[in-house]
């Protein structure tokens, strides 16, 4: 396998991992599968288009504003929608996320039509190739995605492992009743999980749009990242990372050595294969599965 192929795998894995993190965060804390995640990612990208239009001379401000909006978006989705579903069947919540996805898709077409937008072009940024090794090139935006994915995962790991609120998020996922009894406001923890989830999704959407633009079908990428989260076991961030690598490697190997037509189905083939052997995913916990 050539070094360029490995670089390609790393980039694609970083994209899938960055998107998957949000699936895992919400699922791990509230056991809700957020099927509007891809749409939320797309909205994050569109928000960058909007802020870029407003502050084309100040990219840093535009990026910061879009990132903060990504966080706020999750808090709002929780406060307006998902909050009212705590205590209801998980299935009801999942169905509501499906409806939310449809709503967001419709809304985004009303606002941004079906046109392709390039926030990088608005900033006047080129996306030149970078030689990372002799014969290995990736775009600046791809490099940024890889770097950001590493930063996001490291930050999430440190947060969940070593901060009180991180420990509380893990606790709420394990036993929401006991968490409440230990003084933890579940709504606050859930809102935080949603905020972090859409924040990371927005970062993914923003960087993807800087790399290759955004249009109304970007949400589908959320669907393609979903197998990565599931392969790793929906409740494990480390699993999502490994799952993203496996899925990306399989997809790129299929394109390179078998048939590019397979690239769409390979993630789901990998998923079926893994779930047949370990229904709870590679790093998920068996106990979590019983609850769904």
């Amino acid at each position: 396998m050539s070094p360029q192929l490995i670089a390609n795998i790393v980039v694609l894995a970083a994209i899938y991992a960055l998107v998957s993190a949000g699936y895992v965060l919400v699922y791990r804390v509230s056991h809700v599968l957020n099927l509007a995640h891809g749409e939320l990612m797309m909205i994050g990208a569109y928000i960058l288009v909007a802020t870029a239009g407003l502050f084309s001379g100040n990219p840093i401000l535009a990026l910061l504003l879009a990132a903060v909006s990504g966080l706020v978006m999750g808090l709002v989705v929780y406060a307006v929608l998902m909050r009212w579903l705590t205590g209801e069947a998980v299935l009801a919540a999942v169905l509501v996320t499906i409806a939310l996805g449809i709503l967001l898709r419709g809304l985004s077409i009303l606002i941004w039509t079906t046109q392709q937008f390039y926030p990088a072009a608005i900033f006047g940024w080129r996306n030149p190739p970078v030689h990372i090794l002799p014969g290995v090139q990736i775009s600046v935006a791809s490099l940024a995605i890889v770097a950001l994915t590493i930063i996001v995962y490291a930050a999430l790991f440190l947060f969940l492992q070593f901060t009180a609120w991180g420990v509380r998020m893990r606790a709420a996922g394990q036993n929401p009743l006991l968490a409440e009894q230990r003084g933890i406001r579940l709504h606050a923890v859930y809102a935080l999980a949603w905020g972090l989830s859409t924040f990371t999704a927005s970062l993914a959407g923003m960087l993807l749009s800087l790399d290759s633009g955004v249009e109304s079908t970007m949400a589908t990428i959320g669907l393609k990242a979903f197998p990565a989260a599931l392969v790793g076991g929906l409740d494990s961030l480390f699993g999502a990372l490994v799952g993203a690598l496996i899925v990306a490697a399989a997809e790129i190997a299929a394109i390179q050595f078998v048939n590019p037509l397979l690239s769409d189905v390979v993630p789901f083939l990998v998923l079926l294969l893994v779930l047949a052997v370990r229904p709870w995913g590679l790093f998920g916990s068996r106990e979590q599965l019983d609850r769904v």
């Binding site: 009180a164 606790a171 394990q174 036993n175 006991l178 009894q181 230990r182 933890i184 916990s285």
Partner: peptide, 24 residues
């Protein structure tokens, strides 16, 4: 504050984390 009958600790957290978790 309640010490429940069942499920009284968070099994996947360490002992120290089970103390950290409380929002005092």
């Amino acid at each position: 504050v309640l010490v429940p009958e069942r499920d009284k600790v968070f099994p996947n957290l360490t002992v120290a984390e089970n103390l950290t978790v409380a929002a005092t």
